[in-house]
């Protein structure tokens, strides 16, 4: 099992330039998606045959706040002219979709909201996701960002054997 974080308060743009640099779609993402994207990059950058489509890796995203930071941006745009570019990010699962698109993961992607971070509880849900017989590994993200400047972002890459 591999574990990474994105420390609160760092510049996500800076981190992107240092560690990725070749995926300009990053700049269109909301903060939640940027966090999930950067966690995923840190977890899978050394994968062999990266970007070959695969169905055996799930992307499971958990948080308390969902996409509330972006929801507030959309509400502000609504007063003037509702922004479709902001509206598509008002879904807590878009971050999972962004990771799937970047890495060509055609397996399960799911987004969950929990009252608090509780690793034992989170791992119980991850174990349940492995009931899908094709799922052999899972990219698990806890990315909680109540605003664009505060977050708790941690990610794990686990195999079936790590949790069962």
């Amino acid at each position: 099992m591999k574990e990474v974080t994105v420390p609160a308060g760092v510049s996500l743009t800076e981190l992107y330039r240092q560690e990725v640099g070749d995926y300009p779609k990053f700049f269109k993402m909301d903060t939640l998606s940027k966090l999930g994207f950067l966690l995923a990059e840190r977890l899978v950058k050394d994968d062999k045959d990266r970007f070959t489509p695969r169905e055996d890796r799930a992307v499971l995203v958990f948080s308390r706040e969902g996409c509330v930071a972006n929801d507030r941006h959309y509400v502000r745009s609504m007063e003037d002219f509702p922004s479709p570019a902001l509206f598509v990010y008002t879904l807590p699962n878009i971050v999972a979709g962004e990771i799937a698109i970047r890495n060509k993961y055609e397996g399960e992607t799911s987004a969950y909201v929990l009252e608090r971070f509780d690793k034992a509880q989170l791992m119980a849900f991850v174990r349940e996701a492995f009931q899908d017989p094709l799922t052999r590994s899972a990219l698990v993200i806890w990315a909680d960002c109540p605003s664009d400047t505060q977050w708790d972002a941690r990610g794990w890459l686990m195999d079936r054997e790590d949790v069962l």
């Binding site: 999972a96 979709g97 799937a100 698109i101 993961y105 055609e106 399960e108 992607t109």
Partner: peptide, 8 residues
Amino acid sequence: IRNDANHI
């Protein structure tokens, strides 16, 4: 559950 890995 499966993803298209295509477009958001």
